[in-house]
Nucleic acid binder design. Structure first.
Lengths: 341, 341
DNA sequence: TGGAGTGACCGTAACGGTTCAGAACCAATT
DNA sequence: AATTGGTTCTGAACCGTTACGGTCACTCCA
């Protein structure tokens, strides 16, 4: 029976014809994929864990690019891609247990995520993208720290010393406000932690006391967050010359807020982002471009590559500093040089 | 054993503890989801069939909206969403056979699609969105014909009689060029066929000879297609006062081309779209808004709604005519009235 | 004290395929 | 005639789980 469908060469055409004929007559709908998966130990699909309301993935351009790359890799391999329903609010990891997949791709989740823990218990290969950074699990990502460090040096070279920072959520708890250095170090999101560390290192070397740099965190990732965060920083510290945001979305929001206050960018305020999304390019944002689509594709390839099983493997993709039109030397540079930072 | 994991109330805490303890000691990774699916006849996932390069779904805003809505419905139900790798180039329907899912959502495929045929053979519920329009299969969509008809009447009321039309692909074969009335009627894509029919009806009633209206088709759906298609129409028929596009993407391309030619929109040329995507709104496009996210959500709900099994069910969502800034009365309206259309 | 009732626990039979060993058959060789 | 080789076909085992019914010990009440 099985042979009639899957291995036509193993039996005579006559028998095959007869088998298929009776199968049709009996209304047999073809081999059951689940039973097949059980026997062959292959599900023909990979699971994607996002731990974020799923619609986030469809609205955030960076996540979307990743998703597209992953989908392409799966398509190439003829493998299904299953989106696991794991919103942050539901602690219920049953969905992870129920997923009939050959492996998982985990995209940008906090290191204490319960769904991630459930994934790692499953006896299937896993690839983590961006975060967390786990030893003994395959990984795809970028060097967030040095990428941000490079951007910081770029601003420092321009003369910026009085800066403000807007970053994405650092942990699973909501903290829309200022971030202590302790919280920065304890952040459960490796990516944000690294980007802040890159900034801290560069500015410390330039003689700036990092502990006095205002860093504001926002839980939700959208332009409204960027706006309110920028407002919060500018309200407290109107003398800053640059506002560094850890994502383009936040930076676009910050630019809205700057315009609302009548601040010209970059003449009155330098604004920078991170990601290199399309909208940022259109706005001429100074930012760091990371290859989001390639990240997805690399994650898929790594997971589906049955060869090379010398785990763990780690892929670091390269980033590029994009010098746009939103960063320039601060107006008050000479004055600042005089008085010191 | 099974009870220890899934039904703690069926056994004493003591035994449960002992079972779990030994399980851990033996390195038992928890119940196998595939075996469970086989036994319970529930896969806990629905399949999505797109029959379009998967990355299309992530680039086309309308498709993306649908995807988001569907993902939300699945998330609410705690169900996985599996993207089936079925690019149009590969005739290989094995992926459909291999998918361990409880049902399929089919989004906008031609009526002669082989993957669709394979889906319909599977003994699981199916919901089709937009196209094709099959009797005895659940359906979610809009009334494309009357929506487009309403838009046409809007333009007719403004005085437009000399029009050109740009539409998306009408069949699986590539035909980048003019479309005969025969091909319009024979189109394998129900949605495009209906939209053209809505136009044809409105303009025929207004005294326009539909067979002489230039209709140009493009296989690829992007702004470049809109540009070249608009160019093709305007080259042959520079006297048209309105260019009606069957999608916003095409319309945005058409506007680019108009600008390139120094034609002002809407003073020199009226341009309209269809879908109501975000970018169209920003551009002030006159178009028809359809609730893409709701379509996805409705499709998911229909599929997952275990109750009501009086099939087939059909959901028609309502559309809305958006009067933007890209349509106005033709400049030559008095002249045209004098000489007739 | 016996019998019914209750609850905890356990054994077994599907679920629907794939795979593989070996039977059956036929032809060719020794 | 017996052995060998090769092909086609059949049957049984197995994948890991859940549903179900049966066993057993224990309690409660007459």
């Amino acid at each position: 029976m099985s042979n009639a469908y899957n291995r036509p060469d193993q039996l005579s055409p006559e028998l095959r014809r007869r088998v298929l004929e009776t199968a049709r007559r009996l209304g047999y709908p073809g081999p059951d994929p689940v039973a097949r998966s059980l026997r062959t130990r292959k599900a023909g699909a990979v699971g994607l864990l996002l731990t974020e309301n799923l619609s986030y993935a469809f609205r955030d351009p960076a996540a979307l690019g990743f998703l597209e790359g992953l989908a392409l890799a799966c398509e190439d391999a003829g493998t299904g891609l299953m989106l696991i329903p794991a919103s942050p609010e539901r602690e219920d990891v049953a969905a992870v247990h129920r997923a009939g997949v050959d492996g998982f791709v985990v995209y940008s989740v906090p290191d204490d995520d319960p769904h991630l823990a459930a994934v790692l218990e499953r006896p299937v290969p896993t690839v983590v993208c961006d975060q967390p950074d786990l030893t003994n699990v395959d990984r795809v990502g970028i060097d967030d720290r040095s990428a941000m460090n490079e951007l910081a040096r770029h601003l420092i070279a321009m003369g910026h010393r009085r800066i403000g920072v807007v970053c994405m959520r650092l942990a699973r708890d909501r903290n829309d406000g200022y971030v202590s250095v302790d919280r920065q170090h304890a952040a459960h999101f490796h990516v944000q932690r690294s980007r802040l560390a890159g900034l801290a290192m560069a500015f410390s070397e330039a003689g700036v006391d990092w502990s006095r740099v205002p860093v504001v965190e926002r839980f939700d990732h959208n332009t409204a967050s960027g706006e309110s965060a920028a407002a919060q920083v500018l309200d407290r510290d109107p003398t800053i010359t640059a506002l560094i945001c850890t994502s383009d979305i936040l930076a676009l929001g910050a630019m809205n807020e700057a315009k609302r206050r009548g601040l010209r960018v970059p003449e009155d305020l330098t604004v920078t982002g991170f990601d290199g999304i399309h909208e940022a390019e259109r706005a001429g944002l100074t930012t760091v471009r990371q290859p989001v689509l390639e990240k997805g594709r690399a994650a898929g390839k790594l997971l589906l590559d049955v060869g090379e099983r010398t785990r763990p493997r780690s892929v670091n993709l390269s980033t590029e500093l994009i010098t746009g039109r939103t960063a320039s030397a601060p107006r008050t540079i000479t004055e600042e040089r005089w008085f010191g930072p």
